[in-house]
Computed example of a mutant assay.
Amino acid sequence: MNKSTTETERPDWLEAELADTIDEDYELELSEPALSEEIRKIYRKAHPASIPRLEYFRTLLRLQAELIKLQDWVSYHKEKVVVIFEGRDSAGKGGVIKRITQRLNPRIVKVVALPAPSDREKTQWYFQRYVPHLPAGGEIVLFDRSWYNRSGVERVMGFATEDQVEQFFHDVPEFERMLVRSGIRLVKYWFSITDEEQQMRFLVRIHDPLKQWKLSPMDLQSRVRWEAYTKAKEETFARTNIPEAPWYIVEGNDKKRARLNCIDHLLHQVPYEDVPHEDITLPERVFNPDYERKVLPPELYVPSKY
């Protein structure tokens, strides 16, 4: 990671960006739902004070500025980066992915969150449906869950047989070594939360109409099968933590710290540097004295209600 600013410096661009976007970021951070007063008390008791909001935003913006440099380096040098995000339901994977991509170019940085396999895909080589989403030169792909579904949810929920799971454990180390040998930089994160924290987050989702969509029957079953998921996770680490693609565990009970720690760690996994940029100048507007802008019919305009 190439740090161009120290933690104590406050460059003008940061102050300007902070002032300009604080409302947008604050909206993203409105995580405390309209819960019953009793659940609100329990939730607050279980969550001691986190990083002060302003300090969190300042640090996040600095890290996002570095992510832009990383993106530019990947694009310039035609590098290929894959980042895998795994973990229990509600562990915070989506939140960190959102902060990573928030200010990046979606043509360069892509998020892949595949649905359940179709009947046809179930008959394919297991890794086949993931391969088309791997990056070309100059791209970063973030997998919001990945081929590790096989050793996780598919195994625990009975969607894969023990023979299929064993075949997966046999194949995945070599599959990932192939990716690395092909020039892909592969980084794997597991977001870890406690039993109590997951229960609180599920209660939040149940009582918040803006978050109920995040709960699926599969999520609710994950509560019932907490211990089975724990055993599956432990075996996954034991059999797929290879030198070419090690696992990194992100402690996720504190959402803000988890986001900052993960982004900071990711920046240190890639030896990016500043790349040449052409100077950008705004060209002069061409005025045609014979051009007259037409007045469009009022029914074409979106009503100004706000």
Results as ranks from 00 to 15, higher is better:
268 H>T: 13
273 E>H: 15
230 T>Q: 15
240 T>V: 00
209 P>M: 03
191 F>Y: 07
252 G>K: 04
218 M>D: 11
211 K>V: 00
240 T>A: 01
232 A>N: 13
258 A>P: 01
238 A>T: 15
245 A>L: 05
222 S>F: 05
270 V>L: 14
226 W>E: 08
240 T>R: 03
219 D>I: 06
226 W>H: 08
264 D>R: 12
249 I>V: 15
258 A>F: 03
262 C>V: 14
188 K>R: 08
291 Y>E: 08
278 E>P: 05
193 I>A: 03
198 Q>M: 03
257 R>T: 13
202 F>Y: 03
285 R>W: 04
254 D>F: 09
215 L>Q: 01
231 K>N: 14
289 P>S: 12
269 Q>C: 03
279 D>G: 13
250 V>P: 00
207 H>M: 08
256 K>C: 04
239 R>T: 10
244 E>C: 09
214 K>D: 07
276 P>I: 08
265 H>W: 09
210 L>W: 00
223 R>C: 06
204 V>T: 06
265 H>T: 08
237 F>D: 01
202 F>L: 06
219 D>C: 06
266 L>Q: 01
288 N>I: 13
250 V>Y: 00
268 H>D: 12
248 Y>M: 14
224 V>G: 08
285 R>T: 15
188 K>G: 04
286 V>L: 14
246 P>G: 05
221 Q>A: 14
276 P>Y: 11
208 D>C: 00
230 T>P: 07
257 R>D: 13
235 E>T: 15
247 W>I: 09
254 D>N: 14
212 Q>L: 01
260 L>Q: 03
252 G>T: 06
224 V>W: 09
238 A>W: 07
291 Y>L: 10
196 E>V: 04
189 Y>H: 02
279 D>L: 13
265 H>M: 05
271 P>Q: 09
251 E>G: 11
203 L>K: 07
237 F>L: 14
286 V>I: 15
247 W>K: 09
220 L>I: 15
278 E>F: 08
290 D>L: 08
218 M>N: 06
